[in-house]
Design a protein around this nucleic acid. Structure first.
Lengths: 216, 216
DNA sequence: CGCGTCCTTGACCCGCGGGTCAATGCGATG
DNA sequence: CATCGCATTGACCCGCGGGTCAAGGACGCG
């Protein structure tokens, strides 16, 4: 495949099918351990077709990651009440992220791979950084109005973002069978407690009603 | 190499040399991207020699990980004052771990790889779990005496252990140039705040003097 | 029906890199 | 100095798996 060819409806579908199969396999056994043959077999097509839709295995991976990071950010942004106080926004975003990860476990497992294969680390890190910046901006407001502990805002943001990924991984790998909602609530409490400047701020934020589920 | 052969002093040394070179390379470019040839070249020996000391590449990796997890646990345990209250022990262990990771950055980067290659995940996870259990036991005591928030102890322990690894990674990959001591202090504060049941407990624990450096 | 574009096939190529092996060195030990 | 077992060498083997390609549908359009 050279640059962006025009794809028919059928073509779009087939490409998506390959993306889906690849995502599942990557999530199951990782990038390096997934063969192109495995992907096309899973999709029930010939090997050559893979290269009609993708430059190579790496390109497919990048596309997959990009797509999903986008989705997550949107989902998270949608869950935040723009009127709420900073720490409450963080709580809402955190809960939403955990839920998102649960529904799109396959896709999400993918993002973890980026840290493993150094080949991707540098390029894909940028995506995470953008995400982290979103959070940092909110945290900054919380620090300004003294509801969030006055710490290095980048360090805090990194912690918040990673935390979600961390517990998502934990849950996904089945080491703690528990309902998603429960886990989401736990992570939210954990994050809020680690950020709140005072006990009463934490209590106030945690007392707010559960974030309503947002339509995808 | 079949099982454990008797090695001369020279043999021990050579083997260690290979382990060191491999650790550096793995840390730099990851497991899958490091060739056996690269390792032996770095050590300045012939390829065949690699297989005199190790069953294969995977076996070397496992040995490396095992070795370092052991070291970390010892280091961490040594940093904890057995008389101190639970949360203070956690703080001491956390600070020590961050310091440890800074000194043995190469070795430590290795532990992250385990999450990437699914091949290792299952087996090596057990090691992490043991580590997590250590922490869980301490947390349990803190929950009993109400100095630590009454949450699922396993979830908390996982968070604490991962947190350290997380920020270690962050620091190691050079995204936040700052003195190790400063980072260690930050992570300790983060963890203490997320665990403490009450503001005054957190303050008390954080007011305690810096853990003295323990001789290796 | 002829032509062009999109789609699909599967046999084939080929280099990379893990792993082997027969030969040799070398430092103890009797 | 003979012998033995640890240590070391580097050429070689070989399969795996990424990537190619020539050929052949299928569908739409004038």
């Amino acid at each position: 495949m050279t640059d962006d060819r025009r794809l028919t409806a059928q073509g779009q579908e087939r490409k998506q099918q390959l993306l889906d199969c690849a995502a599942t396999l990557f999530a199951e056994r990782g990038f390096a351990e997934t063969r192109v043959v495995d992907i096309v077999k899973a999709a029930g097509v010939a090997k050559g077709l893979f290269y009609w839709y993708f430059e190579n295995k790496e390109a497919l991976f990048r596309e997959l990651v990009e797509l999903n990071r986008l989705r997550l950010r949107q989902f998270q942004a949608a869950a935040m009440d723009p009127e709420a106080e900073p720490l409450l926004q963080i709580r809402q975003g955190t809960e939403a992220s955990v839920r998102y990860m649960a529904s799109y476990a396959n896709f999400f497992a993918l993002l973890e791979v980026e840290n493993l294969d150094k080949k991707f680390a540098d390029e894909l890190r940028k995506g995470t950084d953008v995400h982290t910046r979103d959070i940092a901006v909110i945290l900054q407001r919380g620090i300004a109005d003294e509801t969030i502990r006055d710490e290095n805002v980048d360090l805090l943001a990194y912690g918040v973002v990673s935390m979600v990924g961390l517990y998502g991984h934990f849950h996904r790998t089945g080491r703690m069978p528990m309902p998603v909602e429960e886990l989401a609530a736990f992570v939210a409490r954990f994050v809020v407690c680690s950020l709140a400047s005072h006990e009463k701020v934490a209590r106030r934020v945690l007392a707010a009603p559960l974030t309503p589920a947002v339509p995808a």
